[in-house]
């Protein structure tokens, strides 16, 4: 494969990873000062901070591979809805604490497995970011798995909320593991993992945790697609408007 074509695929992949981290980080950060208990407030803020830090690496690499003089900040703050490549899962609204936690758990399990596989990526810069990020995401997954079990197998109220969250969010998980032509080309040249393999490992971990949490996976759910192609939900426009307002209104503003 010619270098330009490989760079282009690696750029697309970095955008996908970066956008997932950015959008989830932005949403989780909104909990700062609002979580049900202080410990969770701190944990959510730290998780958001990790994700935003990882975004900086991924979008920085995407900008470098693009080679058009844009920065990570330009990519985060100056792109429109259709240019975002994150999965639909991370753009689902925060809802209650149970929704936020279930979204985090379903994402963390995927994120951890993808990053682990990326350690052997043929693109050195991608492997290096994964090496850094996987250490943080290991803690994210440990925490979200643990809390899903505690709340799922908790009181009647917490169980009901966790089950509702799972029912609402399950249909957005398939997309993360359904390869499109970009994913297939990336797997072929060893830049990114085969998503079929990730799906098997993901299902194994997620099922084990949900079972221990006494939660039931919705059956025959239709899996929504579209995020990777830039087809996002209506709420996503509002999320971006909120996140991008300052840079759009005052271009180049800094602290």
């Amino acid at each position: 494969m010619p270098k330009a074509a490989k760079d282009n695929l690696a750029m697309e992949f970095s955008l996908r990873m970066g956008d997932n981290c950015l959008i989830l980080g932005q949403q989780v950060a909104a909990w700062c000062g609002h979580a049900p208990v202080l410990e969770e407030d701190i944990a959510l803020a730290n998780t958001a901070l990790d994700l935003i830090g990882q975004t900086k690496f991924w979008l920085g690499l995407a900008a470098e591979l693009e080679g058009e003089g844009r920065s990570a900040d330009d990519l985060a703050f100056l792109r429109d809805v259709r240019a975002f490549r994150n999965g639909l899962l991370v753009e689902q609204p925060n809802g209650d604490f149970g929704q936020t936690l279930m979204r985090q758990f379903l994402f963390d399990a995927w994120h951890y497995l993808v990053l682990t596989a990326l350690l052997s990526s043929t693109e050195k810069r991608i492997a290096e970011i994964a090496e850094k990020a996987v250490k943080e995401v290991t803690y994210h997954l440990e925490r979200s798995s643990d809390l899903v079990i505690r709340l799922g197998d908790g009181s009647a109220e917490s169980h009901a909320r966790m089950q509702t969250a799972l029912d609402d969010l399950w249909r957005f998980t398939g997309e993360l593991m359904t390869p499109d032509s970009v994913d297939e080309a990336l797997a072929e040249i060893g830049v990114a993992p085969d998503l079929g393999r990730i799906e098997k490992q993901w299902a194994e971990h997620v099922r084990a945790v949900l079972q221990e949490a006494t939660l039931t996976i919705p059956e025959g759910a239709y899996m929504q697609q579209g995020g990777k192609a830039g087809l996002h939900s209506e709420a996503f426009g509002h999320l971006l408007a909120d996140m991008q307002f300052l840079q759009r209104a005052y271009p180049g503003a800094t602290w």
């Binding site: 410990e39 969770e40 701190i42 944990a43 730290n46 998780t47 901070l49 990790d50 943080e136 803690y139 440990e142 925490r143």
Partner: peptide
């Protein structure tokens, strides 16, 4: 352990 996260990451 009270929480896996403290005053800094």
């Amino acid at each position: 352990r009270v929480s896996q996260f403290g005053s800094t990451p």
